[in-house]
Design a binder for these strands. Structure first.
Lengths: 155, 155
DNA sequence: TATTGTTATACTCTATAACTATA
DNA sequence: TATAGTTATAGAGTATAACAATA
């Protein structure tokens, strides 16, 4: 499991970075399952919450734009938005000049539900960060999340 | 989105930590989808890779022990292991004294496949960390992943 | 032709419930 | 009774393929 030869030119993902990558993969799976478990009882699913959250942060958008931002297929986002629309959490308004497009936006009810969902779903993460880490460690995690978010959104 | 009053006693997840939690949730979803996309063509699924990886790191284990470690239900782990066994990547040997249990361990073929899978799946993460971050940032991410892994494995 | 969005279908992952076998 | 494991079934999430409407 160790590099035998370190090619001098290539950046050669070091053993440490390879291990970090492995840890990130494991962590991703665990967090996904924890988030899912924290959603129980809520009638807003993970993908729906993510779409709501983005509409709140970035304002109204089309299905395709949301799909690109969330890195899912338009069909998947379409299904997510259809469920949200049926629940009255988002609404669609026709695009003024392009009749193919529909602009999705949060309803007032959607905004309220989003606030609830955030409290329930992200509470334990924020709580764990607050309780189990000291201030320096918190700062490290906050900075790292910013860096990783940048990498994840890049192509 | 801001705390109006900071209750002096309660740790009161600060706005910054709440934002970090939100970012971690979004990041988790995006990484999950990227990892899944990177699995295409591979016939080892994400959960299977995760189980293989743990067997490699921690040695042979029973279904229930693996399920606990990965934070999934024994039934889910059972399905994962059954697929791996059918593919010849793990094998089961009866527990010497308790006939209910079966010890799962990596086969040689499993070890080889795991190495391949790691290269393919974690390569882009390790590559992105190596190429897009400077040394100090890499250190921050490495430390943060250690901290987050600790939180995710705690109850 | 290209883009937006929908419908139909299938697969992965995980869960709950109900069961058998063994301790 | 408690634990290890299996089988059956369901739901969330995503994907590909094929299509309709519009630009």
């Amino acid at each position: 499991m160790k590099d035998r030869e370190q090619p001098p030119a290539a950046p050669a993902p070091s053993a440490e970075l390879a291990e970090a990558a492995a840890r990130l993969r494991v962590l991703t799976g665990q967090l996904m399952r924890r988030l899912r478990a924290a959603s129980e009882g809520t009638d807003v699913t993970l993908s729906q919450a993510s779409a709501l959250s983005r509409l709140d942060r970035e304002g109204p958008a089309t299905t395709v734009a949301l799909a690109r931002a969330e890195r899912v297929r338009p069909q998947s986002m379409g299904a997510t938005l259809a469920a949200l629309e049926e629940a009255g959490l988002v609404e669609r308004t026709p695009h003024p000049s392009d009749r193919r497009q529909a602009i999705m936006s949060l309803t007032e009810q959607g905004r309220l539900r989003l606030a609830e969902v955030r409290r329930e779903r992200e509470g334990w993460i924020a709580g764990a960060l607050a309780e189990r880490l000291d201030e320096r460690e918190q700062a490290v995690v906050v900075e790292a999340l910013g860096l990783l978010a940048r990498l994840a959104e890049e192509d």
